[in-house]
């Protein structure tokens, strides 16, 4: 009944100018690239074992020092094993491992080969101090200002603990609290034995 109108009926009908086409394709592909990058970022999870950890610095809470300074720079810790623990005072599972971490720190601190650092994630200082006092935490702790460090590690939650070897390469990731202090010893002794 009706004729398909595939044939252009008039000569004045023009296709889309090539420049406009180009702009459309660039925009479309740009958008897709952007989404692809976002997707890749979500899919990749936390930093991976074997990754070289970029440098970062952490300013401690008042009263905490490391080698006399109230600040630490990862690059200054070359040659030492760095254990970085992400925690928060509002995090209930963190409380399960707090004592174990402190006790492990006491076991290693005199050797000078292992450094524990606590990074306090999205927390308020008064609550954080109460928490540190409650568990008598002595290893250096500081707020993760602007969530920069946790974003760099792409943490998924707290607690998470990252073990960085003497070359500054990530060796082990603990998601969630440690079941016992022994776990920490096993990991660290393994790293020290290498």
């Amino acid at each position: 009944m009706q004729q398909p109108s595939a044939e252009p009926t008039g000569s004045e009908r023009k296709g889309m100018p090539a420049a406009v086409q180009a702009v459309i394709w660039v925009l479309l592909l740009g958008l897709l690239a952007l989404v692809a990058m976002g997707l890749k970022r979500t899919q990749q999870g936390t930093v991976q074992i074997g990754d070289k950890i970029p440098d970062f610095s952490l300013v401690f809470f008042d009263g905490y020092t490391y080698e006399g300074k109230n600040e630490v720079q990862l690059s200054d810790l070359q040659g030492k094993i760095v254990v970085i623990n992400f925690w928060a005072s509002w995090c209930i599972p963190c409380e399960d491992e707090a004592a174990a971490l402190e006790s492990a720190w006491n076991a290693y601190k005199d050797s000078g080969e292992v450094v524990f650092i606590g990074a306090d994630y999205v927390d308020t200082e008064p609550e954080a101090r109460k928490y540190l006092e409650k568990f008598n935490i002595t290893f250096p702790n500081g707020p993760d200002l602007g969530t920069r460090i946790s974003q760099m590690f792409r943490i998924k939650g707290v607690p998470e603990t990252y073990f960085i070897d003497k070359q500054g390469v990530l060796h082990y990731i603990q998601i969630g609290p440690f079941a016992s202090e022994d776990d920490i010893h096993t990991i660290l002794d393994g790293m020290l034995g290498q």
């Binding site: 109108s5 595939a6 252009p8 023009k14 296709g15 889309m16 086409q21 459309i24 394709w25 479309l28």
Partner: peptide, 11 residues
């Protein structure tokens, strides 16, 4: 869809 649209644009 974009390719089709550009192809048929003049119609």
């Amino acid at each position: 869809s974009t390719a089709l649209l550009i192809y048929r644009w003049k119609d």
